[in-house]
Amino acid sequence: MEFVKRSTYRQRVLTSLDDKVLMPTEIAKRSDIKTNYVSKVLSELKNKGLVELLNPEAKKGRIYRLTDFGKTIVDKLE
């Protein structure tokens, strides 16, 4: 929880994904963060088990969603 609270970018990316499956460009638009930052944040969140990449073989058009743990964190943020 503290890991997420320390960064507004992490919070905004997680809340953008709430109950959705999105590509980084869509997350960037919803969270008003540049795509390159979104990609970095998604990598951090994935390593912490908060989001999952649904199509890891794809080089373009990658899609992400919250894990159950990520959903729990988003609920606590709200």
Rank of each mutant, 00 (worst) to 15 (best):
D75N: 14
E78T: 12
T35M: 11
T15V: 14
F3Y: 13
R65I: 04
S16L: 04
T67N: 02
G70A: 09
I73R: 05
K76T: 10
K60C: 01
R65M: 07
R65Y: 07
V38K: 00
I73L: 08
A28N: 01
S39K: 13
E2P: 03
I27H: 05
L54C: 06
Q11V: 15
E78P: 05
E2N: 13
L14S: 06
N55A: 08
K59T: 12
R65G: 00
D32A: 15
S39R: 14
L54G: 06
L77Y: 06
M1A: 14
K76P: 02
D18N: 13
D75F: 10
M1S: 15
I27D: 01
T72G: 05
R12L: 11
V38E: 04
S16Y: 00
I63Y: 08
L77C: 07
K5S: 11
E57H: 11
V38M: 04
L14M: 06
S39C: 11
R6A: 07
R12E: 09
E57N: 11
D32W: 00
T72A: 13
V13Q: 03
T25D: 14
L22Y: 02
Y37P: 03
R65T: 10
S7R: 01
E78M: 05
F3D: 04
G70F: 02
S39V: 13
L77K: 05
L54P: 07
R62Q: 14
K48P: 03
E26A: 13
D68W: 08
V4H: 06
Y37W: 14
V74G: 03
V51A: 01
L66D: 03
Y37A: 12
S31A: 15
K60R: 13
S43P: 01
S31V: 02
P56C: 03
D32V: 15
G61K: 09
T25H: 14
R65W: 08
Y37T: 10
N47Y: 08
K20H: 10
R10S: 04
T25C: 13
N55Y: 06
Q11C: 07
D75K: 12
K40F: 12
R10D: 03
A58Q: 15
K71R: 14
D19W: 13
N55C: 09
L17Q: 04
V21P: 04
D68R: 04
F69P: 00
E52Y: 09
R30L: 14
N47M: 10
K46Y: 14
F3K: 10
L54Y: 02
R12S: 11
G70R: 06
D75M: 07
A58Y: 15
M1V: 13
R30C: 07
K71P: 02
Y37H: 12
D75I: 12
S16R: 04
V51N: 05
K29Y: 12
M1E: 14
E57Y: 10
R62H: 05
R10G: 01
F69Q: 09
D75G: 11
S39L: 15
P56R: 08
R6S: 10
S39W: 11
Y9T: 02
R6Q: 11
T8F: 12
L66A: 06
S43M: 00
N47K: 15
N36P: 09
F3P: 05
F3V: 08
F3H: 09
